[in-house]
């Protein structure tokens, strides 16, 4: 018997007026998988999450969640999923307990089961002592954890996490990763969207890289990194243009480009290539200031695929305003 995919997306497209936010994407997510959506702001990650959770209607295409069509039975779909939205959706004027309790009632959980489960999820995110405090007194990290607890309360088969660590400090972010790993161990299918490369790398089984509404690559982090041949060299010199020309004309490496004030390119074996490169630069009269060698990261993959760096964003604005800031 063929195994049913947890999520199956078929040529999903979403247009806002003339602007195409999600451009005919197709993919499937297996049960128990931690699937990543990696892309810069405005790539279409949240829009996709809204469509898959039935909050927005696609312009064309459709998707099946646990085998149920999102257009035909949206209410059935909603029963089996949980979501932590990018922007906060808690009620600040209620206590943590009330936020969870109301959620449980909305998902038709019987009173006894609700009570028990609220205890469990609060323990999971280490907020048990705070259950009767108003959410408005919580820090950003605590609110995020409470939202995860709420998304899990009704034991969904699939959990959507839209930029779960956006705006959190590095320490809290890593803490959050351990929760997400714990969830994966419990066997929940997770769709995580993020624009943090290390986050996708650290957590995901497979990653779809999305840019301008299109999936431009989809594979395991390891395989994605193989897209970049060998190693990456970054050379800082006094004349980057000339250095770039040299790399290209002498075929010193592949995919050379200027990034952050140095020339980056791929080589098969860095340590072996460096002496030759230094020699060639000297002959051409270029003064090298520093050389950096590293194994390819997802960042290199992203740059190779899009020709751009992934843009880091600040937190706090709504999706739409953030999109506007980028000129859409």
């Amino acid at each position: 018997m063929e195994k049913m995919s947890a999520i199956e997306v078929i040529s999903l497209t979403k247009k806002f007026g003339a602007f195409t936010a999600v451009d005919s994407i197709s993919f499937s997510v297996e049960e128990g998988e931690l699937f990543g959506f990696l892309g810069p702001n405005g790539a279409g990650k949240s829009t996709t999450a809204y469509i898959l959770t039935t909050l927005l209607k696609p312009t064309s295409g459709t998707a099946k969640i646990n085998g149920i069509d999102i257009l035909q039975s949206p209410e059935k779909v909603r029963k089996s999923i949980g979501i932590v939205f990018q922007d906060q959706t808690l009620d600040n004027r209620l206590s943590a307990y009330d936020n969870l309790n109301i959620h449980g009632m909305l998902y038709n959980m019987p009173a006894a089961a609700r009570k028990k489960r609220i205890k469990e999820v609060l323990e999971l995110v280490e907020l048990s002592e705070w259950e009767n405090k108003l959410v408005k007194t919580f820090s950003g990290g605590m609110r995020r954890r409470l939202e995860i607890a709420r998304g899990l309360l009704h034991t969904p088969k699939i959990l959507f996490l839209d930029e779960p660590t956006l705006g959190l400090d590095a320490h809290t972010r890593r803490h959050m990763w351990t929760y997400i790993k714990k969830l994966k161990e419990q066997g929940i299918t997770i769709v995580l969207s993020t624009h943090y490369l290390e986050e996708a790398d650290a957590l995901c089984d497979r990653i779809a890289i999305i840019d301008h509404g299109k999936i431009i690559a989809l594979d395991t982090p390891q395989n994605l990194k193989k897209l970049v041949g060998g190693q990456v060299l970054s050379i800082k010199s006094q004349d980057n243009e000339k250095m770039l020309g040299l790399v290209n004309s002498k075929n010193l490496g592949a995919n050379a480009r200027i990034l952050n004030g140095s020339v980056s390119f791929e080589v098969k074996n860095g340590s072996e290539a460096i002496p030759g490169i230094v020699n060639a630069a000297e002959k051409a009269g270029i003064k090298i200031e520093s050389i950096e060698l590293h194994v390819p990261s997802l960042e290199d993959v992203f740059i190779k695929l899009t020709g751009e760096q992934i843009r880091e964003e600040t937190a706090g604005q709504s999706d739409f305003k953030r999109g506007l800031a980028h000129g859409h």
Partner: peptide, 14 residues
């Protein structure tokens, strides 16, 4: 504006 509407609309509730 504060997002809670999403929590209400994504619940399996008419």
């Amino acid at each position: 504006e504060l997002g809670y509407l999403k929590e209400l609309l994504v619940a399996p509730t008419s």
